[in-house]
């Protein structure tokens, strides 16, 4: 058995008295493509946001790539992580946002190269070469000089994917990447994510409502309900033969809606 690259251990996330993640145990293997589905408020986006260190956890331990994410080991005990540790851990992860969150004052090219140049300290020429390759991959070579406001939503999200990949993360987090898009633009973004899913080494964690797509690209589907993994299995198991009544209910609502 390979060690999991992501491991949630009894992770609790609360906002005041509202429990979002309820002693969540959840593992992802290296290179695995996992899709999280579930009703809104089930904590699926929170899992991604916690991994990207955008939200803190209330209790529990998360390991990413063999190291605790929100903690540091000092004198054999786990202490809250320092900013330096979080910075090191963040480098392993990349995130694609529902609302794209591109930098509106930068060209497409600069959106992609800004972090590699200023965070990874890559030489400019190297960062640009890499950005050009990524733009080719997402089919936006012609748009490098444009500003985000000149692009369609689908194009913006593809830039968002290229921007995250430019940092060479081991793990890519997709937080409802097509939910903000007009229906006719969903396909182009899913195509790009689908082609990434073919990459062997990349670990992918995807939150989406695109069930057909999830079925095609995922190794495993996790159904979240009330801050826990209610049911998980291969796409075949979950979509064709869900065991839990709650899963069946959800899938029925989503697939018929």
């Amino acid at each position: 058995m390979t060690e999991p690259i992501i491991k949630f251990d009894k992770v609790v996330k609360k906002y005041g008295t509202h429990v979002v993640l309820d002693e969540l145990d959840f593992d992802v293997k290296p290179g695995e493509k996992v899709t999280i589905i579930g009703p809104s408020g089930s904590g699926k986006s929170t899992v991604l946001r916690i991994l990207m260190t955008l939200e803190e956890i209330s209790s529990g331990v998360i390991h990413v790539d063999g190291e605790p994410l929100w903690h540091e080991e000092r004198n054999g005990t786990l202490k809250p992580a320092s900013e330096a540790h979080l910075k090191k851990m963040r480098a392993k992860l990349g995130m694609v946002f529902q609302q794209f969150n591109l930098f509106p004052h930068m060209s497409v090219m600069r959106n992609i190269t800004e972090a590699p140049i200023n965070v990874l300290k890559l030489p400019k020429a190297e960062a640009r070469d890499r950005a050009e390759q990524l733009l080719k991959m997402v089919g936006l070579t012609e748009h490098a000089h444009k500003f985000p406001s000149q692009l369609s939503g689908g194009q913006q999200q593809r830039v968002g994917i290229a921007r995250a990949l430019a940092m060479r993360p081991k793990i890519m987090l997709f937080d409802e990447p097509t939910s903000a898009l007009d229906p006719e633009l969903v396909g182009e973004v899913l195509n790009v994510i689908g082609s990434l899913a073919a990459e062997h080494d990349l670990t992918m964690l995807l939150v989406t409502h695109e069930m057909r797509f999830a079925r095609e690209v995922s190794d495993r589907i996790c159904f979240f309900d009330r801050g826990k993994v209610k049911e998980q299995g291969t796409p075949e198991q979950i979509f064709s033969n869900p065991k839990e009544a709650r899963t069946r209910e959800f899938l029925k609502a989503v697939l018929e809606g």
Partner: peptide, 23 residues
């Protein structure tokens, strides 16, 4: 969300201010 994007790309708070927020 701009600060979140900056954080996800591992910009320091100072870089996020000068490169993302101020412009």
């Amino acid at each position: 969300s701009q600060y979140e994007a900056a954080k996800a790309l591992n910009f320091s708070p100072r870089q996020a201010l000068w490169r993302i927020a101020l412009p």
